[in-house]
């Protein structure tokens, strides 16, 4: 009985919060949108995000052996990391320091996260020419910048 009542209350609440969920989803690759949320609009999106559902097909199959969007050290892992952290990373790069930069530096095997920060900060406009630049391009630019700057000694990018 209690569950029935709760169900009724939830249905009302969910319908009333429908307005909160208007965003368009559907980023491909390993971006935040592809993993954490699905490309389904609507309230379930929001409801789902925590109780904790995802419609995601790109989830990490524990026993299926799929390992897409995994961040092993190396260029491929660095790109996954960059795509998944794009918003936070853009901010950290503009500041020349921050948590995502430190993690990126260790993923890429760079000697000094501070130096990585200042090199990427200097190249901000080249890496993020516009807000609409696809994340794959951002990832490519960052990886090639890190490789090009040999002084950074990013040893795991191959």
């Amino acid at each position: 009985m209690r569950r029935l009542l709760l169900a009724a209350v939830f249905a009302v609440l969910l319908s009333s919060t429908q307005a909160f969920a208007a965003a368009k989803y559907g980023a491909a690759g390993c971006g935040l949108g592809s993993i954490v949320f699905d490309s389904q609009p609507g309230i379930v999106q929001i409801f789902a995000a925590t109780t904790n559902g995802t419609f995601g097909t790109q989830t990490f199959g524990i026993t299926t052996g799929t390992s897409n969007c995994e961040t092993a050290p190396g260029a491929a892992g660095a790109k996954v990391f960059i795509e998944g952290n794009r918003e936070a990373l853009a901010k950290d790069i503009s500041r020349g320091q921050g948590e995502t930069l430190k993690n990126l530096a260790s993923l890429a095997g760079c000697a000094d996260a501070g130096a990585v920060g200042s090199v990427l900060q200097k190249n901000f406009k080249a890496i993020f020419p516009a807000a609409t630049t696809p994340s794959e391009n951002v990832a490519d630019s960052i990886v090639s910048t890190l490789k090009r700057e040999t002084a950074l000694a990013c040893s795991k990018l191959g």
Partner: peptide, 20 residues
């Protein structure tokens, strides 16, 4: 993480299925 794999977008159905 342990989470529900929801298969509906209907809020009434969602609440019902989630609770039961």
């Amino acid at each position: 993480d342990y989470s529900a794999d929801a298969d509906t977008r209907n809020p009434v159905l969602y609440a019902f299925k989630g609770l039961f």
